[in-house]
């Protein structure tokens, strides 16, 4: 203590690095937790990994037992998935092989199996449909939900609680129960197998989610901010646009991802209410199983391409999501 006074204080301790002082039991528990989480992650990720690998395997490698970890990657699965091909034989095959240099990457791969590419497969359309329907319904339901949530959060609406419950209740019936009536209604209205019909359907289903989620987020934004903007000379809509919207960004991002994932993954309605024109990817992948022999690599490739958009969006919004998924539990 005496020396402390003579030499003055040492450099302030800003962080502790005394790992050696951690009790062995605590260290063991920490490790045990880490291992447990790792196992859980593996259980979750192995199917994804297997699918990712399978997508790049050749026909022979797909069915190899035991499954190959190291193999020569090929885009065969993607070619099968994304193109419509016809089998060549005899002179036509020779002819095609002679002109192989003119073919693109996919064409050459197809040629290796003695096939010629006639055009893109249905799956490309299906994926495109998914994009339009999921994207469209997400945008509409988030925008509508935002206005509704703002109104529910800020204004005295007669029967507010009942209305909110009513909105939530649209989510209570399982898809199985409503598909048949919906199918009949859609057929009458000419909405069956149309993009508009599917966008409407997913919008309605997502609205309950978006209204409730966004209301929670907007409730967390103090009214004073808008009131300040109101006395500062702005209209309510301007205050909403300039003040509420930037602060609700987190919540909007989270809600967007949630409703996008629902619309993107939805299977049952898509199976029942679309046939060809507006069919989305999920039922299309399932029907691929049936067509003359199971093309595992094509299915895996289809599932992979199907996953990618959601992953990209989630990744792009990850910073907002981190705060968003806590549902505004953190007050700034």
């Amino acid at each position: 203590m005496a020396s402390f006074e003579e030499t003055g204080p040492r450099n302030p301790v800003t962080e502790s690095i005394r790992v050696d002082k951690v009790h062995p039991r605590a260290r063991f528990l920490d490790n045990a937790r880490a291992i447990f989480v790792l196992i859980l992650a593996l259980i979750g990720l192995i199917p994804v990994l297997a699918m990712g690998l399978t997508a790049f395997k050749s026909r022979a490698d797909v069915v190899a037992v035991p499954p190959k970890i190291a193999f020569e990657p090929t885009l065969e699965g993607f070619v099968f998935l994304l193109t419509e091909r016809s089998q060549l034989s005899g002179t036509k095959l020779e002819e095609a092989k002679a002109n192989a240099d003119d073919l693109g990457l996919f064409g050459q791969i197809a040629l290796r199996n003695g096939q010629r590419i006639n055009g893109p497969s249905d799956y490309v359309t299906r994926l495109w449909n998914s994009l339009i329907i999921a994207g469209g319904s997400t945008i509409i339901s988030v925008v509508l939900g935002l206005f509704a949530a703002y109104a529910f959060s800020r204004f005295d609406i007669p029967g507010k609680d009942d209305l909110l419950f009513f909105i939530l209740s649209t989510r209570m019936l399982p898809a199985v129960v409503v598909t048949i009536p919906l199918f009949l209604m859609f057929r009458q209205l000419g909405l069956f197998d149309t993009h508009l019909g599917m966008i409407l359907l997913y919008t309605v289903f997502n609205l309950s989610l978006t209204v409730w989620l966004l209301k929670g987020f907007i409730d967390e934004i103090p009214r004073e901010y808008e009131e300040a903007a109101l006395v500062d000379g702005y209209t309510r809509f301007q205050a909403f646009y300039k003040i509420v919207l930037p602060q609700a960004a987190t919540g909007i991002a989270a809600t967007t991802v949630f409703s996008l994932i629902f619309a993107w993954n939805e299977y049952a309605f898509a199976l029942m209410l679309t046939s060809n024109n507006a069919r989305t990817a999920p039922p299309a992948i399932a029907t691929m199983l049936g067509r003359g022999g199971i093309e595992w690599s094509a299915i895996a490739a289809g599932t992979l391409t199907f996953l990618i958009p959601v992953v990209i969006i989630t990744f792009a919004l990850r910073r907002h999501l981190l705060r968003g998924v806590t549902f505004g539990a953190i007050r700034q």
């Binding site: 009131e227 300040a228 006395v231 702005y234």
Partner: peptide, 17 residues
């Protein structure tokens, strides 16, 4: 409020974050 030509100071400041 915007047409009244008044300024309001709030207890919790209400500065736009």
């Amino acid at each position: 409020p915007s047409d009244r030509d008044i300024a309001f100071v709030f207890q919790f400041f209400a500065l736009y974050p």
